[in-house]
Amino acid sequence: MLLWRIGANVIPTRVNLQRKMQHIDPACTFCNNEVESSTHLFLECPFARALWAVAGWGIRFDTAALTSGEDLLKLIINPPDAPIPANEQWTVTLNMALIMDEIWNSRNRKLFKQEQADLIKAKHCVQARFQEISKVFTPTSPPIQRSCSTFWSPPPPDYIKINLDAALNSSKSALAVVARNHLGKVLFVWGKENQLCSPLQAEAMTLLWAVHLAIQNRWYSVMFEGDSKICFDTLNHPDQTPNWSIDTVICNIHSFSSCFSSCSFGLVRRNSNSVANVAARFALNCLQPFCFSEGILPPAIEAACKEDPLFVFHLGWRVFHSKLNIAEPHKRTPVNNLRTNTQKWEMMIEI
């Protein structure tokens, strides 16, 4: 109903009310700096812009091209592309509609109850309502529970296990994601540089990136593993308040998790996350983003895979040994000699 009223320009913003009653002040209820039109209230007002930033999944749109309530309605019905499957695009429309509804509710609470606009409360309200509504239309199977394991183990058939880690130095951070199937085959190893931030923020951003990559590859049964206790404890206990520095990232991960048929977030020890750890250190010394698959792994990452007790090469190590003429394990480049490996493998990087 709210969207229809916006599209038909019959929603009682102060601009619309002033057309009927001249004595009404048209200034925005939130900022009091601009007239309260539909486009200003829902898109341009500082409070609206802040809510879109923290709850809008990073979606960007050109506000200059939106000049009427009808334009707003078209934006919601045909939202910008998001990194999720086509059959899940309705969740973008749902989230955007809930953001606009929360802006309107916050405006009314301030106008009629003199309640100050609370951005954090508004964000949590949007995300809680999204989770509640999306569960009705997205049947999910119970997530697979995993305890903190000692060694890497393959996922069940038809599942993809994604390990992730981050690395930092004095000037930047790096993110790495490793995807393997139930046979232990490495499907992809991704890595990229990131801005300098705290280790906790880097781990959270890596986890969000891993979720995006799983959605882009249309993996619907996924197990995410990492060694960041704070991140994974927060994800597995929604009643806990996230650390303020990763609050938005964790909430976005919760929202995107509805795109999967089944997903779990498992805390593991460092030695069962060694491949992701080595890939993150490799990315820290790499000059550009990379995407490797089995058969073209850099020696450092390949060595880490070989050290996993349950790692299995798809066609057998001996086949790759004979075809690629890879050195014996005891002659291979040490895992921590990353800079030399980086130079050797830059020509094989796939952006």
Rank of each mutant, 00 (worst) to 15 (best):
M1D: 09
N9K: 11
I11T: 05
P12A: 07
V15R: 06
L17F: 06
Q18V: 01
K20F: 12
Q22P: 04
P26K: 06
A27G: 11
F30C: 09
S37K: 07
C45Q: 06
C45P: 06
P46Q: 03
P46C: 04
L51K: 09
A55L: 10
G56L: 05
W57S: 10
T63L: 07
A65P: 05
D71N: 12
L72G: 11
P79R: 01
P80E: 03
P83D: 05
P83G: 03
A86Y: 12
W90E: 02
N95M: 03
A97R: 05
I99L: 02
I103L: 06
S106Y: 00
K110L: 10
L111S: 10
Q114A: 10
Q116K: 13
D118M: 03
D118N: 15
K121P: 00
H124A: 08
C125T: 15
Q127V: 13
Q131T: 14
Q131N: 14
I133F: 11
S134Q: 04
K135Q: 13
F137G: 05
P139G: 03
P143S: 00
C148R: 13
S149I: 10
S149D: 10
F151M: 01
P156C: 04
P157M: 02
D158N: 13
K161A: 00
I162D: 01
A167Y: 08
A167C: 07
S170V: 10
S171Y: 13
V177F: 02
N181Y: 05
H182A: 13
L183M: 11
V186Y: 12
W190Q: 07
G191N: 09
K192Y: 02
K192A: 11
S198W: 08
P199W: 07
L200T: 03
A202G: 08
E203Q: 12
A204H: 08
M205H: 12
M205P: 00
T206P: 08
T206C: 10
A210Q: 05
V211E: 07
V211D: 06
L213E: 11
A214K: 05
W219D: 08
W219N: 06
S221F: 14
D227H: 05
K229Q: 15
C231I: 12
D233P: 05
H237Q: 11
H237W: 02
P238A: 03
P238T: 02
P238M: 02
N252D: 15
I253G: 06
S255Q: 11
S258N: 11
F260R: 00
F260P: 00
F265Y: 01
R269P: 00
S272L: 00
V278N: 01
A280P: 01
A280W: 01
R281E: 01
A283K: 01
A283I: 01
L284G: 01
N285L: 04
P289A: 00
G295A: 07
L297W: 04
L297M: 08
I301Q: 07
I301C: 06
K306C: 13
E307Y: 03
P309M: 02
P309Q: 03
L310C: 14
L315N: 14
R318P: 04
K323H: 12
L324C: 12
I326F: 06
E328F: 09
E328W: 05
T333M: 15
P334L: 08
P334K: 10
V335I: 15
N336M: 11
L338S: 08
L338D: 06
T340Y: 13
T340A: 14
T340K: 12
N341C: 15
Q343A: 14
K344I: 15
M347S: 13
E350S: 15
